[in-house]
Simulated scan of single mutants.
Amino acid sequence: MVDPDHVLVPTLGRPREDEALTYALETFPGAAVTLLAVVTPLDAPLSEGGVLERSEERTDQARGRASRLLEAIDAPRAADRVRIDVVEGRPGTVVPQYASDHEVDHVVMCGHDSKTTGFVRRFLGRDIATTVVERTPQPVTVLE
């Protein structure tokens, strides 16, 4: 596999997303990284957490969450390589679409939280990472 030029790391407000960002930065040191903060629409069955607020406020919160994630990791010069973008939509749809529209070569994301796996899979029938893997033509690395 050729090293990617552009890596996408979706952030949904889940635990361990710092691991996905750190993995992308360390594994692909020459790649530009986009930290994609996904804002789940209000009509979706699950949201990124917290009280559901107006879309503009939720978008600002998602951008702030991604900024704090970037600041929290211990990676030299990470800010030089990471761009933050925010999109609204269902993660299983917007992540593959963003990857296709923005010449992304590889996607790195964390998998399900092991504490909620049983509930989430029973409730939804699948997790978001599985949907992203199935719908994204680019390689996807899922950290378990």
Rank of each mutant, 00 (worst) to 15 (best):
L69M: 03
R58P: 00
R54S: 12
R58I: 03
A66N: 01
D60K: 10
A62F: 00
D80P: 06
V38I: 01
R58D: 08
L46P: 07
C110R: 14
L36I: 01
G50A: 04
K115F: 14
G49Y: 10
G89E: 00
V86C: 02
A62L: 05
G64R: 14
S47H: 08
I84L: 01
E88H: 11
S114M: 07
L12M: 12
V120H: 09
V87T: 15
L12G: 08
A44R: 08
P10F: 02
T22Y: 03
V108E: 03
T40R: 15
R121L: 12
G92W: 14
Q97R: 14
T117W: 11
Y23S: 09
R14H: 13
A32H: 14
V87R: 15
I73R: 07
L12P: 01
R121F: 04
F119G: 00
E17K: 05
G89T: 04
R14E: 14
E103F: 12
V104W: 10
R122A: 15
P29E: 00
G13L: 07
V108A: 07
H112P: 08
D85N: 15
H102N: 13
F123G: 13
D113F: 06
V87C: 11
V95N: 09
E17M: 06
A44E: 03
V9C: 02
G50Q: 05
A66C: 00
R90Y: 15
M109W: 00
D101P: 04
L52F: 08
L42Q: 10
H112L: 11
A72S: 15
Q61L: 11
V120Q: 08
G89F: 02
R58L: 14
A79F: 07
E19A: 11
T116L: 14
R68H: 10
A62K: 05
A79H: 15
P10E: 01
R16Q: 14
C110V: 14
S100H: 11
V9M: 02
